[in-house]
Computed example of a mutant assay.
Amino acid sequence: MTDEYAESAEFIDILIGPHWNHLGPALTDAIKDIGPGTGPVVDIGAGSGRGTAVIGDALPDAEIFAVEPSAGIRSALLAKVNAHDALRSRVTVLPEEFLDSRLPDRIGVVVAMNVIGHFSPAERAEIWSLLARRLAPNGRAVLNLQPPSDPVSVPDTLTSTVHIGRRRYEGWARAEPAEDGTLTWHMTYRTFQDDELVDEREVSYSWHPISEPQLRAELDQAGFRLLALQPADLGMYAITWTDA
């Protein structure tokens, strides 16, 4: 499968960092009460490991399976895990696509941050089916929905700026609807030194927008309920059994 992040992997960790200043505390609040005996944690689309580190701190006794199919981004994930004494012995990094990964039979927590749009409706149905078979009775999944929830145009927007040494890194994003109901995101990564543009990379990938009502309906059919988490502007939700 083509690695959609091959060209942009070196920029992902630094540019997503500021967003985790808000996502991190919210994710901690969403999972910190899960007991160590509930089961291991699966981090879907773990990326460069920002969320994996948050999970490790929030659940210091949990085993974690970090799934990241992009080789470029996975190198940052592995480096982060290897450099963290508290993670090295309990985080297993899996290089396959999530639905092809070798996962434990019982799962306590599933985390899917900034990733659910990579899955088609049919693939989402497979994910809910997998959860129905493996999620512990008192377990939960946590995910976020990123706007827009419908396939509409998004103008070119500066999403993140980071300064490292004499260089400034910028991430830009715009989106256009495709005929099949998906969005095509066009990402531009610019590097400046002394305000001179010295590098520019452009990548595109498909995204399956999903609204809260649509997600709630899918989960209801699979036997789960969807709970909105705070703060509301982060679009985070917990998935639990209907009788939990």
Rank of each mutant, 00 (worst) to 15 (best):
W20E: 00
N138I: 13
H163E: 14
L78G: 14
W20T: 02
I31W: 03
E63M: 06
H208D: 14
R174C: 13
M236Y: 00
Y5R: 04
A217E: 08
V154T: 10
G17M: 13
R168P: 11
A71I: 13
A125H: 07
P177G: 09
N21P: 12
A222N: 02
Y205P: 04
P231A: 06
V154I: 15
G51R: 01
I164C: 06
D85M: 12
A175C: 13
S8V: 06
G181F: 15
T157C: 05
G139C: 02
G223P: 00
S149F: 09
M187Y: 03
Y205H: 14
S120M: 05
H208C: 14
R166W: 13
R190W: 04
G45K: 03
I64N: 02
E63P: 07
T240Q: 08
R50N: 05
G72I: 02
Q230G: 14
S153M: 10
E196V: 15
D13I: 07
R124D: 10
R216F: 08
A232N: 12
A79Q: 09
A217M: 07
W185R: 07
P69D: 05
T159P: 09
Q230P: 12
R167D: 07
H208W: 14
I239S: 02
L77T: 06
E4R: 10
F224L: 05
A6M: 06
A9I: 01
V154F: 15
S70R: 04
V111S: 03
A9G: 10
V111Q: 04
P60T: 02
Y169P: 09
G108C: 00
R225I: 10
V152N: 11
E68N: 11
R216K: 15
Q214F: 12
E212P: 08
G235K: 00
P40Q: 04
E96M: 12
G171P: 10
L77S: 07
L158G: 02
F192G: 12
A66L: 04
D180Q: 05
L27W: 00
V110M: 07
A141C: 05
I44P: 03
T240Y: 14
T159Q: 09
Y205S: 08
A6Q: 11
Y237D: 01
A9D: 02
Q193L: 13
S89M: 03
T191S: 11
H84D: 07
S160R: 13
P104R: 03
E218T: 15
G37Q: 15
V91A: 02
S211N: 11
S149W: 13
P151L: 04
D220G: 10
G56R: 02
T52S: 03
G39T: 01
P213V: 03
A79W: 05
W185L: 15
G45N: 05
E7V: 10
E10S: 12
S204A: 10
D100W: 12
I55Y: 01
K80C: 04
G17T: 15
A238C: 04
N144P: 05
R167H: 11
D33N: 09
E202S: 10
A53D: 01
